[in-house]
Design a protein around this nucleic acid. Structure first.
Lengths: 352, 352
DNA sequence: GGCTGGCACTCTCAGGTCAGGAGTGCCAAA
DNA sequence: TTTGGCACTCCTGACCTGAGAGTGCCAGCC
């Protein structure tokens, strides 16, 4: 996890913990700094003065802070962290919401549509921004390849991988090939390598070529030339995510500053920072929570991010999550993200 | 064009016109309401008092308005419109910028990349938001079609159209076909219809089928079943645009209100309004300017939009443009949009 | 008749003051 | 250890004020 330095719960009396819990819940709900009077009336059975003592302790320990002398207290990042780790009661997601997620993530839809739907769902149900990394496909099983001649020594390669995904790329070759020559090369590759991993095929072909040197025939040379360019990873390019509901973030008063908002949205379009954050979550298990500067990125200082990986056949393919202000309903967001990740995994798994 | 009701230039003395021109230019540059003193010192050879008289006339005619009693004047939509139609001197775009556009719009790139580059160029050079409609391809020439069996009576159809564009769709068929059966159907369609328009092919096949009724063989029936679903327009779905540099709009003080900004960005993600506006420009000639409420959409009230259609073989394929605050440097944006549209057309035309 | 200088007027903006309210910290008493 | 009391701090909004900018209008001038 990501808490900066462990704040031993031992430091906090049972009473202080209860108080912190109520205060954080209250603050998340109302958005106003909460004072001792408010707490005394709602949930804490102590006089305002005693509450003030406890709050002073909590402030000293770094769980709370006062925006100014007479303004009640607000949770710090550390306060939220402790709340999230030890105090929060995660309720299961309402079944209506679960149903909606389940119904929307149709296993028959294409991967792109699934990713799109998932991010729309996340934003719709959280009223914040939803993000879904597009699945990284580290294994690309060749199903079929096809080449079509273009002019200028260029060839259009069409690649069907993993049963239903179609990719196409334009490759540059050493001379113009005829339609027939390309067909032969494709047939050769299909016959020999259908059902195999394309990167393996590529390196195998190259190795074979090098070993055999002189006695390779023209057909094989052709095939290798194509394969070399066709079967390259576009993993780099596919390192991407889909986002929905960014505009929801404009509704939060915490983020109402136009200049900050601009930076935030620029970070969203550049994608780099969020991708960095999401990459960290790829191989962590289950739901992760990053609060404020725990994200490690300045632009996200006022934001929290909740993520969960999704997977197929037990292999993590990507990460999804929500982005919102630090003052968010964590106990609702955690199950939302969790359920969405599970159901997206299920949809991807159960496809045929 | 779009001016609401023609403001006869005759109403305006030569002097008033000159004054309006200087005032609008000044306001666009500085962003502050401009007063009589400022004008007297910069460009207008009259005393402040005389200038005030002229300005009062212009205000009465609806070309200017005063934000408040002692704040100088600001152009109204009508003022901008008259400026744009009759007063503005459009300078040609700096050659450095033209070069950059030309170099960036590489004819060898894919359509998607070209559209993306064009919108990035527009936003980069305008410091506002750039928009490019994706080309509507009303003619889809079949080059090759391929079918691959999936489970559950579904087939993956891969379609190469217009020489280099690859589309794929999943179609539902009446029974599971074998790989061979699908191959036959594809060969049949390719042999007969390669190089033809896919919609024509579709209707022809259906007509033929209906005419021949009983004596069609199984192969043909199969082919028709595929073609029927494969060769459908996705023109609807492709009604789309690519936008870049939205965040630039957050820098303008005119648009600094978070609530309005949110509406604007929501309109951008929903796309409907902008598409409506762009559709109007499809069949107008050359550069179009929409100022403030001339756009016809409330969210764009504070914005101006400048568009130009782009074309291939003399046929308009789409529209591109920029979106910014009404207070923009029209005389620079017009040639920018114009040149980008021309060079995008050129790039699309000269491809091989 | 059109242009100009002068002048009173209006409006915004920034800064300062002030009272009210909210919440705290501390202390002494229960 | 808890609690009530009290002085204190700080924010907030309202109000005022003076400076600055620009106008409208008028009377005089070319």
């Amino acid at each position: 996890m990501t808490q900066p330095d462990p704040a031993p719960a031992a430091q906090l009396s049972e009473r202080a913990q209860r108080l912190l819990k109520v205060l954080v819940e209250r603050y998340i709900e109302e958005g106003q700094p909460v004072g001792s009077r408010t707490l005394a009336k709602g949930g804490i059975e102590l006089s305002p003065a005693s509450i003030r003592n406890v709050m002073a302790d909590l402030e000293e320990l770094g769980f709370l802070r006062a925006p100014h002398t007479s303004a009640g207290r607000v949770p710090t990042v550390r306060g939220y962290r402790f709340f999230v780790d030890s105090l929060m009661c995660v309720q299961p997601l309402e079944s209506a919401a679960v149903d909606r997620v389940r119904r929307t993530l149709d296993p028959h839809a294409s991967t792109t549509d699934l990713v799109q739907s998932a991010s729309t769902l996340l934003s719709g149900l959280s009223h914040m921004a939803g993000v879904v990394m597009v699945p990284r496909r580290d294994s690309l099983t060749l199903r079929q390849v096809e080449f079509l001649p273009l002019s200028d020594r260029r060839v259009l390669a069409i690649l069907v991988v993993n049963e239903r995904e179609v990719q196409n790329r334009i490759i540059h070759v050493s001379r113009d090939y005829s339609r027939i020559e390309l067909l032969e090369a494709a047939n050769y590759l299909n016959a020999l390598f259908a059902g195999r991993d394309i990167f393996q095929v590529r390196s195998e072909l190259l190795a074979e070529m090098r070993r055999a040197q002189s006695d390779v025939n023209d057909l094989m040379r052709r095939a290798v030339e194509m394969a070399e360019q066709t079967f390259v990873a576009d993993g780099e390019a596919a390192d991407d995510f889909v986002m929905a509901g960014q505009t929801n973030l404009m509704g939060f008063s915490e983020l109402a500053d136009v200049a900050r908002l601009r930076q935030l949205f620029e970070a969203f379009t550049q994608k780099r920072d969020l991708l960095g954050l999401f990459d960290q979550c790829m191989h962590a298990q289950g739901v992760q929570i990053f609060i404020g500067d725990e994200t490690g990125y300045d632009v996200l200082e006022e934001c929290s991010v909740i993520t969960a990986p999704y997977e197929v056949d037990g292999r993590v393919l990507g990460v999804l999550g929500v982005v919102g202000p630090t003052r968010m309903a964590y106990e609702r967001m955690v199950p939302l993200v969790d359920v969405t990740a599970r159901l997206l995994s299920a949809a991807l798994n159960s496809r045929v």
